[in-house]
Simulated scan of single mutants.
Amino acid sequence: MRAVSAAETAPTTYGWTVHAEKLVVRAGRHLAVNGLDLTLDTGVHGLLGPNGAGKTTLMRALATVVKPAGGRLSVLGVDIAGRGDLRRMRHDLGYLPQHFGFYPRFTVREFVEYMAWLKEMPKADIPGAVQRAIDRVGLTTRADSRMKTLSGGMLRRAGIAQAIVNDPRVLLLDEPTVGLDPEQRLDFRELLRDIGLDSCVLVSTHLVEDVAAACTDVVLVSDGRLVWQGSTGELAERGGAGDAGDSATERGYSALLRAHRGQVSA
């Protein structure tokens, strides 16, 4: 029997959970992400920006759906732009795209089980993990309902369940609160805070109030580039009485975008 060295059993270390340097990603012929620098670690990070800012394309690149066209991108120490072990990394990844597909005749349980199988989770662990994920998104009583019978908000919660079923170390959620009612959004924020205690969560949304309530960090992008990154408190301090928005956080968001556009046009 071969002896196993300490180096072989030591945990993999890396500087940042997510690290992008001069990242370039195309959406068709368009450079949706163009020279973006970004570092993320454990916590809940809100991804904000106007329509066409490159948020969804960035999420797709982090989820390994699209390959970067330039620059460097690593997730959990794996080089996404090169020849890293993407299959291994995907075991620790959860992703909810803005529009996700499903078999309408699947029940919620079958849908989440199927996604757990695709993520190559150990067979013995799947039933318990599926039930836990369904419970965490508040679909316990609808676990055996067919997907085609669910409301839009319930479908979104089923999508969140499949994203968290493998207890991912990196969780990517693109517009996860679409269709959720106010009470469900409050529950979702609590769920995010819980997951963010030991995972890196990136949430793309247009709802600034969700970011202010659930996120520890804000990433603001525009024109495919990083405009600003900081805490929600720092974001609120950036705005003034003359900036658009109903809250300090929204006014800070508006002020940063206005300043960025002024620099671009100068």
Rank of each mutant, 00 (worst) to 15 (best):
G15E: 15
L38P: 07
T64F: 12
V44P: 03
A10C: 07
N34K: 05
A61K: 06
L62Y: 01
P50H: 09
L47N: 01
M59G: 07
H30E: 15
V33M: 04
D41Y: 09
L62A: 01
A53M: 08
A20V: 08
H45R: 06
D37K: 00
L40I: 00
T12I: 15
D37N: 11
A69S: 12
L38V: 03
P50V: 03
G43T: 04
K55D: 10
A32W: 02
H19K: 15
R26D: 14
A32F: 03
D37W: 07
L62W: 04
G46W: 00
G54Q: 02
G70N: 10
E8H: 13
A27Y: 14
V65K: 02
A63I: 09
R72H: 12
L31I: 08
V75A: 03
L48T: 02
A32Q: 09
P11R: 06
A27K: 08
T39F: 12
P11E: 07
M59K: 03
H30I: 14
S74K: 05
W16G: 10
P11H: 04
G35V: 04
T56D: 01
E8R: 11
E21S: 13
G28Q: 12
D41M: 03
H30G: 13
K22S: 13
T12E: 15
E8C: 11
L47M: 09
S74T: 12
G15N: 14
G15A: 14
T9Q: 13
T39E: 14
